[in-house]
C-alpha cells in the first residue's frame, strides 16, 4: 500500500563510518519510536491508572489483564508477519468464528454428543490453516490484493461458522477441565497467557531466525529486489498467511474456551485491536519494518488502556473515541520526525 522513499540509506552508510557518539544518538532516536517509547507510555499508563483506582494494580486485576491480553496477543503475531511483508490480513474475525465453532462442536458440549479430544484441536486448527492457505494462494498466485482476498475470507469463515451453528441451540462446554483451563494459574499467571506467550516466542523465532521471517521483511522492503535475488517470494507470502490463519484458529479456540460456549461472533472487534496494536508498535503498514516485541507491547498498551478506562469509571461510549485518539497521537508522534516534502505516505 505504501512505498516510502528511504532517506536513511546513505545516512546509514555514513553512520557506520562515524564513531560512537553519532551511532549512539541514532540508537536512542530509533529506540524512542520503538520499544523504549512504548515501554515509557505503558509505565505512565500504569502509574496514572493506579492513582485513579487502586484496584487497578491489584494482583487479581493484573491477572485479568493478562487473561484479556492472550487472544489479541496470539492474533498480533500472525498480523505482524503479514504486515511486515506489506500486505494486510482482515480475515481474523471470520477464521476465529469458524475454528472456534468447529472446535466446540467436536469437544464435549451440550449439543453434539461428540468428543474427539485432541482431534477437535487438530481439525479446528486445520480449518484455520486452510482458510489462511486459501487467502495466501489466491493473493500470491492470482494476484488479487490481500485486502480484498482476506475481506472475502472473513465472510467465508463467518459463513462456515454460521453454517456449523445452524438453527440449533447454543453449544456450551460441558467439560469443567476445559472450561476452567484458561483461567487456571501456573506460577501465578493464567494458562491463556502462557499459551499466548508460547505463540509470541514462536513468532519471535520465526521472524528473527528463519528464512521465512527474514524473507517477509525483505519482501516488505522491496519486493522486486527480493524476487530478483531469487527468493521464493510466493512461498513466503503463502507461508505468512498460512501461519496467520493457523494462529487465528488457535485464537478462536482459546476465545471459545474463555467464553465457555460457541459463538459465531467470537472474534468480534479483534481485528481493530490487532492491527492498531501492530501499528502503534511501529510496524509500518507499508511493510519492511517493525517486530514481534513491539507489536506485543502495542497489544499490552491497548488492553491496559481499555482495562484502566473501565476501572477509572469512563463511560463505555467514550472508549472507542479514546482508543482512536491514542492511535492518532501515537502514529503522528512516530511519523512526525520523518516528515519530508518528498516523502510518500499512503
Amino acid at each position: 500500500m505504501t512505498s516510502v522513499m528511504h532517506e536513511d540509506g546513505p545516512r546509514g552508510a555514513a553512520g557506520m563510518k562515524r564513531n560512537g557518539n553519532a551511532s549512539m544518538r541514532r540508537l536512542i532516536a530509533e529506540g524512542a519510536k520503538g520499544p523504549i517509547g512504548l515501554v515509557a507510555a505503558l509505565v505512565v499508563l500504569i502509574v496514572v491508572f493506579s492513582f485513579l483506582n487502586p484496584r487497578f494494580a491489584s494482583i487479581e486485576n493484573l491477572q485479568n489483564v493478562l487473561f484479556q491480553v492472550s487472544v489479541p496477543l496470539i492474533l498480533v503475531v500472525g498480523a505482524t508477519l503479514v504486515i511486515q511483508m506489506g500486505s494486510i490480513d482482515l480475515s481474523v474475525e471470520g477464521i476465529m468464528g469458524a475454528a472456534g465453532m468447529a472446535w466446540i462442536l467436536l469437544s464435549p458440549n451440550t449439543r453434539t454428543m461428540i468428543d474427539l479430544g485432541m482431534w477437535a484441536w487438530l481439525i479446528a486448527l486445520g480449518l484455520g490453516l486452510s482458510l489462511g492457505l486459501m487467502t495466501g494462494v489466491i493473493y500470491a498466485k492470482l494476484k488479487v490484493p490481500s485486502f480484498v482476498v482476506s475481506l472475502g475470507t472473513w465472510y467465508v469463515g463467518l459463513g462456515i461458522a454460521i453454517l456449523l451453528y445452524g438453527n440449533n441451540s447454543l453449544p456450551s462446554l460441558t467439560s469443567d477441565a476445559l472450561a476452567r483451563w484458561p483461567t487456571g494459574l501456573t506460577l501465578g499467571l493464567p494458562h491463556s497467557f502462557w499459551l499466548a506467550a508460547g505463540v509470541l516466542l514462536f513468532g519471535l523465532l520465526i521472524s528473527n531466525y528463519t528464512n521465512l521471517g527474514r524473507g517477509l521483511m525483505a519482501i516488505g522492503n522491496n519486493e522486486p529486489i527480493a524476487r530478483t535475488s531469487g527468493m521464493p517470494v510466493n512461498v513466503y507470502k503463502i507461508g505468512a498467511f498460512a501461519i496467520a490463519g493457523l494462529l487465528g484458529g488457535l485464537a478462536g479456540i482459546l476465545a471459545t474456551m474463555q467464553l465457555g460456549s460457541g459463538s459465531t461472533d467470537i472474534g468480534f472487534g479483534q481485528l481493530f485491536v490487532g492491527i492498531p496494536a501492530a501499528v502503534i508498535g511501529g510496524t509500518a503498514l507499508g511493510g519492511g519494518e517493525g517486530g514481534m516485541t513491539r507489536s506485543a507491547l502495542g497489544v499490552f498498551l491497548l488492553i491496559i488502556l481499555n482495562n484502566g478506562l473501565v476501572l477509572a469509571g469512563v463511560d463505555p461510549d467514550y472508549q472507542s473515541g479514546v482508543f482512536g485518539l491514542i492511535l492518532l497521537i501515537a502514529i503522528i508522534a512516530v511519523a512526525w520526525p520523518e516528515r519530508g516534502r518528498l516523502k510518500v505516505a499512503k
Binding site: 509500518a284 503498514l285 472508549q319 473515541g321 482512536g324 485518539l325 492518532l328 503522528i332 511519523a335 505516505a345
Partner: peptide, 27 residues
Amino acid sequence: VILAYTQVPSFALTLGTLGILQTAALV
C-alpha cells in the same frame, strides 16, 4: 489535512478517526 501534513498512513489515521466518530455518534 492531517494525512497531508503529518504524512501518517491513511489506514491507521482513518482507523483512529473512525473510533472518534463512533463515540461522537453514540454521545
